[in-house]
Design a protein around this nucleic acid. Structure first.
Length: 198
DNA sequence: CCCTGATTCGC
DNA sequence: GCGAATCAGG
């Protein structure tokens, strides 16, 4: 395939819409995302910053930007002292799934008559997230402990005390140990937790 | 590992 | 001009 006018046009359009190079390549067909990126460069329409580089604006500073920059607010000096390394105070707290997600389980292993420990379980998590989870669990791969890999969701499902127990096993969300749905219930904004708490 | 765009350089 | 290989970042 070659870069015919109409293909270039599609390229321009999609790139302008913010489509990724791979998406564009898929759409066009017969080309790889590399080809698309290469073309994009040759066409001059580059930056659009989809990936990394939040980027320093004045990168190519030498620009003939006549605009006299008052340079007024030097972002440099922050009025706030703020030396606090603030190592703590994480944005989100992990709600360890442990073995708590949906399971009447405990009842089986706890001697009759024993008061059950508080079971915050469900009501601590957003309904939407839970709904999503129950959906996902139907599709889960139900993999065993030994099947866990670096990129399989490690969310436990069922009662470990029985053979009706497995791990989600769906593809994990980049970085996280769980799939998207389970990340949703495992990691919650602190505010959300606070609000729901009581 | 998946993905993203950016660059290089032989063709 | 092209794009695979490679690089760099998430």
């Amino acid at each position: 395939m070659s870069w015919t006018d109409d293909r270039v046009e599609i390229l321009k359009k999609m790139w302008g819409e913010g489509q990724s190079a791979s998406q564009i390549a898929k759409e066009l067909g017969g080309v790889t995302r590399n080809a698309v990126i290469g073309k994009v460069h040759r066409l001059g329409l580059s930056n659009r910053t989809a990936t990394a580089a939040p980027a320093a604006a004045p990168a190519t500073a030498a620009k003939p930007e006549a605009k006299a920059k008052p340079a007024a607010k030097p972002a440099a000096a922050k009025p706030k002292a703020e030396p606090a390394p603030e190592a703590a105070e994480p944005e989100a707290v992990e709600a360890v799934p442990a073995v708590r997600p949906n399971l009447p389980a405990r009842a089986k292993i706890i001697p009759a008559g024993q008061p059950l420990p508080p079971q915050p379980s469900a009501n601590e998590i957003s309904p939407e997230a839970l709904a999503k989870v129950s959906e996902v669990e139907k599709k889960s791969k139900k993999i065993g402990l030994m099947d866990l890999t670096e990129r399989t969701c490690k969310w436990p499902v069922g009662d470990p005390a029985t053979d009706d127990f497995w791990f989600c096993g769906l593809p994990v969300q980049q970085g996280k140990p769980y799939c998207e749905a389970h990340v949703g219930v495992a990691f919650q904004p602190m505010s959300a937790r606070r609000d729901r708490r009581r």
